[in-house]
Design a binder for these strands. Sequence first.
DNA 1: CAGCGCAATATGCCTAGACATATTGGCACC
DNA 2: GGTGCCAATATGTCTAGGCATATTGCGCTG
Lengths: 248, 248
Amino acid sequence: MKYSKKTISESLPRYQEIQNHLKSQILSGTWAPGTKVPSEHELAAQFDCARMTVSKAIGSLVEKGLVVRRRRAGTIVAAPRSQETVLEIHDIQAEVQASGRLYRFDIQSRRVGKATREEAEKLGAALGSPVLAISCVHWADTVPYALEERLINLDAVPEAESEMFREVPPGSWLLAKIPWNEAEHRIFAVSADAVTARVLKIRRSAPCLCIERRTRRDSHNVTYVRLIYPGEQHVLVARFQTHGATAR
Amino acid sequence: MKYSKKTISESLPRYQEIQNHLKSQILSGTWAPGTKVPSEHELAAQFDCARMTVSKAIGSLVEKGLVVRRRRAGTIVAAPRSQETVLEIHDIQAEVQASGRLYRFDIQSRRVGKATREEAEKLGAALGSPVLAISCVHWADTVPYALEERLINLDAVPEAESEMFREVPPGSWLLAKIPWNEAEHRIFAVSADAVTARVLKIRRSAPCLCIERRTRRDSHNVTYVRLIYPGEQHVLVARFQTHGATAR
DNA sequence: CAGCGCAATATGCCTAGACATATTGGCACC
DNA sequence: GGTGCCAATATGTCTAGGCATATTGCGCTG
């Protein structure tokens, strides 16, 4: 059979049709975890196409973590164990503007110097290495939106030393400077200390959401940031994703 | 040229070699966002392989969100947009046991009835539909670990009505019952109310991390859960991911 | 019956060519 | 000089084979 795509009305590529078929069996629970998926040969016969086409369809499901393949043993439906969700952490400026409010920020303090022990630890750099420490408040209209405390490793980003952040907030500036990176987040609740309470205009010991992020590039630590969002207002939303490649 | 894999050292498949090469160019920043990647033909010539092999390599990078492809225009390096991180939300029992502590839970209250307006809204079900409402405390050794307030849609999971959760906590029970699903998380900081403070043995209005999760299956809402972790102890860790789809 | 080795099987990776389709740059025509 | 159309190009999808490799089940032998 030669390659002729337009059979009747068609628009979806063949491999996606196959993929959707398999996916619906899995997601609907018809095929429970552990169930053996028909072999590539069988599916190729069933959908009347080449084995490669089936292989491509299944290959994609593997990347999505819906199935696991083993030679000779065949393809089986993966078990969903730890739930993984994708959390989008936006640029604060974009976040505020997306909600239709006026974005503004002001630099509270700015210091260039050698890293103290605490700073070196947070940043993951050597003690005494040159750092830029910045404290900055983000505003949405006339309400404090978040307090940012940031350390920048000047060994990694020497240009930052002369940057005054008059126009662009540090986060956005760095994002533009450093195209691709690795990051690690820690999210937890804290109680507002005196300084935080003052600048965010909330009462002392009010609950705040705190996000710590350490960013690396090519295994070099670039920046550490601690964002404190006031009160119970700020909500991180993580959209779904099930998966189970990491079996347990 | 016929297919002969074992050239010299033999190890990585061809398409992965190509993928790694491209990936390193992108991640190192050598190819800035917007840069045009060599065409499939060029790469095929360069790596002395078939175009399909190159296509497979690039196809995977597309799924990872590192590049964007457009016909005729070619393949270009994608711009890193909002940072996305993968957040793993574990089963509480597993979480506690992983930290080497003894896991225990007790059911505070259990009620079967018709959904109140508030419950219906949280669960995303119709007002008056049958629900199971459960409140449950999770312990690590002798310390309260989290307070769980859960609603289960009995239309979706009728078996839950007769389940008393003596052995298995509701979360684990449901996870085993419902193999694949979609979920939506909301994460924020709250201040402990009187009840929460009492059962978690913390002072009133102490900051707590709150995770709300609504779980669906086949677009049917199955369960809503609100987990409250006491104090500043509990930390969610999200490992990096610059971007993209599903990745590993 | 236990253990070993082999053949069958299912995936893994690859090729060389084909047709399909979107897009773009340039050329011809007005 | 503007504009519309066409050919060149790069990807998108697919085929029908091929050899490579891990595993499993089974039959044979001690």
